[in-house]
Design a binder for these strands. Structure first.
Length: 770
RNA sequence: GCCCGAGUGAUGGAAUGGUAGACAUAGAGGACUUAAAAUCCUCAGGCAGAAAUGCCGUGUGGGUUCGAGUCCCACCUCGGGCACCA
């Protein structure tokens, strides 16, 4: 009879068993402080409850989990929390299309996702879960809004919004494709809308300058700098001939001031209405302005051909030489950038030249002067201007955080006092779009407002941009049940700032910048100590379909993680995603159905390797592997860390036997990657405590150096042979041995050796005459 | 157009200025099997050659260096960001 076959690797059984056991034992519950351990806060962007976990979620959450687990084994008290960014458009769309209640819909999606998220076997501490649409959470979103309002960081302003006349709704930029509404295809128009704004521009300089202190990847910093778009220049006043008024222009080229031949203002410029009375061609000007308004923002951007109209009879004086120049209106000048007016210097600016040529304006060549000097001479000032605009947070939507504002009978806005927070989102709303904010139809909200504030008072009916919810969520994980503050000072001290924030590249300029601003504002208001929220940020790449295209249902290239998990296991999916390439660089990797089988094979081989446990000899390779893996993981190069384990496995499989302790060390190295399988084997080998509570193995530094090493022997930089030498051989010995190699002698025949360079442990280069 | 990245086998990728292609996948050959799958072993950048070996080779062209995938200059291609930004 044959000996009984050892049990095969049954991932389904093992994964279920340990997920339950871990939860039971609470091994992922994180305390705010653990004696002798340093806290380490790893963050990933919380999920939108779309209801179905796709490969992207796995990549976003399970690979950072490897890092978090590694840090934990290294002796850190690691927090790796998860929650839901639960307000947002899809819930509302479901309400409009299917008549669902957005809240019920959202909570259903979250429940589905929690189950799927658990199948990852990640070390999320679910007791710290946050849900941004929960009043216990948004109370503090509203409270912070009030704090900002009190401190002049919030104001009311009229801005342009995308408006779909058919759907009667404001559209977000991403809902507008090629100038039409993505839902109904109707042409989108620009409409003035009064809304609540957050003064992010007040922090523009700090948001740029403080990047220098951060050890972030350069590309991310550059993207933010670019987005903020600080530009240093001069603001100069051009007096209008015959009036007390001036046109203020912004220029980065004050040095070309003497070359100015005209001045242009934006059609929306505040001076326009005043000047109209003095203009000789008012009809023409009005027609031009009307024309501009008809054009969508997109049209204005697309048509590169410059148009404009002269304000006949209006002249501006060049402050440098007193020369009178004509004033024009043109829509290539943007009202929202700089001062909304520019000086035209066709000699030095290509765009100005194009405009001047088209309208026969003079082009004069004048010598350049010193920018700073001339600015001072003409009474201007050196200023910076920014591409960054203030942040409009009002949304005419239902499923968002209510803006805690009420209006008195005279229409003056008042904050809802803190004692009335959370200012609850009502539920009695018809979601059919009719051009007004859904909350305007809530009887409950209006009655509540009157009962608290008095007759004739009415509520704000707009809700906040969901980027507000996500600007501070990382504080709430720290203290998610606190009813006295958004997070207590002691827990913030314990965890902030965040050590590592991994997320999508698409959030580089919006969410990442908003949340940096938010922390700076809280900091300035004395509400938090830190001035920057993220010590390190890494953007991950994208997982593409097997065909190399972005996964999409229409392309039929979508990989369903649930299917792979049930067929090959969560450990395999985690390992495969980590093995595809380095993490934290924005590389996009195609999913290879064969590749995932390959890493599964690796796990099965590790599983089978236990049969070789016996009287083996200690191996140096293990210690090199430990060293290399730690180095690689610290750089998020999980792919090469895995490959190091594969190399070790390949070597051990050739041995007759391996030592129990060494095999267990391999399990520990593999534990962050394949938490379930390693836990099973760990216990099978007699351990009673979780492998995830064990310490990351240390390597023996005396065992990472081999006795001998193979060097490449080059002649004039070309490899001709190799040489096995003792690691401690002297340069002279190596040189002599290399020169004595028969192959080398052959190559050197008739040549003169000029120099020999020995690179210890690497190569020998013999420099010879040709 | 401007800014930031990146170009390496059939594929994902590896390589402190020091033996290019680790590891893995696909592929070829073999073992086991009645057969297939699974598993195991071997080969595997290109060209030439029976082989030994030689020549070529990291987007292109230059350069620095004893030595360049890696550093410098110019260009090409691809990806990302911004864009009538004064």
């Amino acid at each position: 009879m044959n000996a009984p076959k050892p049990a095969p690797y049954n991932h389904a059984l093992i994964e279920k068993k340990w997920q339950e056991a871990w939860q039971e034992a609470g091994i992922y519950t994180v305390a705010d402080s653990v004696p002798g351990k340093e806290n380490y806060y790893t963050l990933v962007e919380f999920s939108y409850p779309s209801g179905n976990l796709h490969v992207g979620h796995w990549y976003a959450f399970s690979v950072p989990d490897i890092f978090a687990r590694y840090k934990r084994m290294q002796g850190f008290n690691v927090l790796y929390p998860m929650g839901f960014d639960a307000f947002g458009l899809p819930a509302e769309n479901a309400a409009i299309k299917q008549g669902a209640d957005p809240k019920v819909w959202t909570y259903e999606q979250m429940e589905k996702m929690r189950t799927q998220l658990r199948s990852m076997g990640a070390m999320f501490d679910w007791e710290r879960e946050i849900v941004s649409c929960d009043p216990i959470y948004y109370k503090w979103t509203q409270w912070m809004f009030n704090q900002f309002l009190k401190n002049d960081l919030v104001y009311r302003a009229v801005t342009k919004v995308n408006w779909c006349p058919k759907d009667m709704t404001i559209l977000a930029n991403e809902q507008v494709t090629d100038g039409v509404c993505e839902r109904c295809g109707t042409e989108v128009v620009q409409r003035d809308q009064e809304q609540w704004m957050i003064r992010i521009t007040k922090y523009a300089d700090r948001l740029v300058d403080d990047l220098d202190e951060l050890a972030w990847p350069n590309a991310i910093k550059e993207a933010q700098k670019n987005w903020i778009g600080r530009s240093a220049g001069s603001e100069l006043s051009f007096p209008l001939v015959g009036t007390d008024n001036t046109i203020d222009v912004f220029t980065t080229r004050a040095d070309t001031l003497f070359g100015v031949t005209y001045v242009v203002i934006a059609p929306e410029h505040t001076l326009v209405s005043e000047l109209l009375s003095r203009v000789e061609n008012a009809d023409e000007v009005l027609a031009y302005i009307a024309d501009t308004k008809k054009k969508s923002e997109l049209d204005r951007q697309q048509s590169k051909e410059k148009t404009g109209v002269q304000l006949k009879g209006v002249m501006a004086k060049n402050p440098a030489n007193g020369e009178a120049v004509p004033v024009w209106i043109a829509d290539y000048v943007l009202a929202g950038y700089g001062t909304g007016a520019v000086m035209g210097v066709p000699e030095h600016d290509e765009r100005d030249r194009e405009f001047a040529t088209k309208y026969n304006l003079p082009i004069v060549d004048q010598p350049l002067v010193d920018a700073k000097e001339i600015t001072e001479t003409v009474g201007g000032k050196m200023v910076s201007t920014y591409r960054l605009r203030d942040w409009g947070i009002s949304r005419q939507r239902f499923w968002g955080c209510p803006i805690p504002i009420v209006y008195d009978p005279e229409g003056n806005a008042h904050p809802v006092p803190d004692e009335h927070l959370p200012w609850i989102l009502p539920s009695d709303v018809d979601h059919t779009p009719d051009g007004t904010a859904p909350l305007a139809r809530s009887k409950e909200l209006f009655e509540r407002t009157e009962s608290i504030f008095g007759k004739g008072w009415r509520p704000e009916v707009e809700t906040m941009d969901t980027f507000v919810d996500s600007s501070w969520y990382f504080y709430r994980y720290l203290d998610n049940k606190n009813t006295e503050s958004f997070a207590s000072e002691s827990v913030r001290d314990a965890w902030m700032p965040i050590d590592l924030y991994m997320g999508g590249a698409e959030h580089t300029t919006m969410h990442l910048l908003y949340s940096r601003f938010w922390v700076k504002a809280l900091h300035e208001l004395g509400l938090v100590k830190e001035n920057e929220s993220y010590v390190m940020r890494r953007n991950r790449g994208l997982i593409l379909g097997p065909d190399g295209n972005k996964m999409s249902k229409s392309k039929g290239n979508v990989i369903d993680p649930d299917e792979i998990v049930s067929r090959l296991g969560a450990d395999t999916v985690r390992l495969y995603l980590a093995f595809m390439g380095p993490y934290g660089v924005t590389g996009n990797y195609p999913w290879d159905p064969n590749g995932v089988v390959g890493v599964h094979r690796f796990l099965e081989r590790v599983w089978k390797l236990k049969e070789k446990i016996g009287k083996g000899a200690p191996t140096n390779l293990l210690h090199k592997t430990i060293k290399k893996m730690a180095e690689d993981i610290e750089e998020y190069k999980f792919n090469t860390a895995i490959s190091a384990m594969m190399i070790l496995l390949n070597a051990w499989e050739k041995e007759d036997a391996i030592l129990l302790e060494e095999y267990k060390t391999l399990l520990q190295l593999l534990a962050p990657f394949a938490p379930h399988m390693t836990e099973e084997l760990w216990h099978e080998l007699g351990e009673t405590e979780s492998i995830h509570l064990s310490a990351w193995p240390a390597y023996d530094s005396t065992r990472i150096v081999d006795d001998s090493v193979t060097l490449g022997v080059q002649i004039n930089g070309k490899v001709r042979d190799e040489l096995l030498v003792a690691t401690n051989a002297s340069k002279e010995e190596i040189e002599a041995a290399a020169l004595a190699l028969p192959k080398i002698q052959g190559h050197l025949a008739g040549k003169e050796v000029k120099k020999v360079i020995v690179v210890p442990g690497r190569a020998i280069n013999i420099v010879a005459s040709e």
